[in-house]
Simulated assay, not measured.
Amino acid sequence: MKIILITPRGPTSRTGNQVAATRWARILRQLGHQVRAASAYDGRPADLMVAVHAWRSAAAIADFKAACPDRPVVLQLSGTDIYDYITSDPGPTLRAMAQADRLVALNDLAWRVVPRRLRARLTVIHQSAAAPRPPRRPSRRAVVISVIGHLRDVKDPLRAAAAARLLPADSRVIVEQVGSAYTPQWAALARQEMAANPRYAWRGDVPPAAVRRLLARSHAMVISSLSEGGANVVSEAAVAGVPILASRMDGNVGLLGADYPGYFPVGDTTALAGLLRRIEDDPGFVRQLTQALRRLAPLFNPARERAAWRRLLAGLAPGIGGL
């Protein structure tokens, strides 16, 4: 089958949408399909469109359906689609969702914000992560807390740095952050934080190998987002066995489960500081987090994600799911 994969351009090649699209292109090719990636529909025929981000891909979906009305569209809903644009600019978002034959969400609670009339089209595919390379060896020089994600408003990116400021003077916690700043203002804020906070370092945008090395030496990873569609860094940390401290909102709870012990209220610096202290001083808490992630890790197995795509495609037309 010939598939066109629509991925809107972002400020960096390592946005969550583009990373997911690259992985899905690989999966679809492994299933025996021909995949070409584009940021807009170019009018060339295809058997199927897979589109990332409803709001940003709305025009591409409309163009494809006008040119190929009998060909299916699979639409992946991003976090900004379902937790922002669906209410702030619903026209393009809901139009794209209505035109799609299948909707893909990345967390188990996304259904709550999908219109009831479209929920039958929805399936959840958890983003996978490969076995960690290098193996995990937490730093002995400090208690390293990693923050992995671009600096943008929705990520609440400096929350862990602010929490580290509240720790006692004898704490060995340091916060290392990687990811590009989406605006000059965020870059300036990160530099100001480094100048004022000896526990914080921002490394900027780094290649995937550097991210893996940071995870390998981390004692915990913080994801403090205000909203998420389903962050792949959660999958990566879970598979690597790195304890996750997560803001309690649907995108995280829909991956980690309601009973996961490592949550803090969104935006609550004091609560996060308390969890950082427990990572440093409470081995029982660390074991509790590690055991919970060990139970969750099979959800993020690459073979499981590939099988989910095979079932999805086979459901569109028998015999096209792939090998």
Rank of each mutant, 00 (worst) to 15 (best):
L48N: 14
V50P: 09
G319L: 00
V222W: 09
R287T: 15
A297Q: 04
Q177N: 13
V286D: 06
R287D: 13
D282G: 03
R165K: 15
W24S: 12
A66M: 06
A220I: 14
A129W: 00
R278P: 05
D84E: 14
A187K: 14
R287Y: 05
A297M: 05
Q18V: 10
G91T: 10
W202Q: 02
R141N: 15
I4S: 00
T93V: 05
A46T: 12
I244A: 09
P168F: 07
T270R: 14
M49P: 05
P184L: 06
A25Q: 04
R56G: 12
N17T: 09
E228K: 06
R304C: 04
S247T: 07
A20N: 12
A160R: 05
M249P: 14
V178W: 04
A314E: 10
A240Y: 00
S57V: 00
L323P: 15
L5F: 04
I244Y: 01
A129F: 12
G251T: 02
D89L: 14
P265T: 08
A20P: 15
A308Q: 05
V253D: 11
I279Y: 00
L245P: 08
R44G: 15
R152F: 11
G32T: 06
R95E: 11
L272R: 00
V113I: 03
M1Q: 14
Q291M: 15
A307C: 03
L151G: 05
R117N: 11
T123A: 12
N197P: 03
T183S: 15
S57Q: 09
E228L: 02
D268K: 08
A231F: 00
V73T: 03
R165Y: 04
Q127G: 07
I6A: 06
W24G: 01
C68L: 15
A240D: 06
A292P: 12
P11Y: 15
R310D: 08
R117Y: 10
R311N: 13
V233K: 05
A60G: 01
G319Q: 01
V19F: 02
A131F: 03
R140H: 13
W309F: 11
R310F: 07
G267V: 08
N301Y: 07
S88Q: 15
A60Q: 02
S13E: 15
W202Y: 03
G267D: 10
A67L: 01
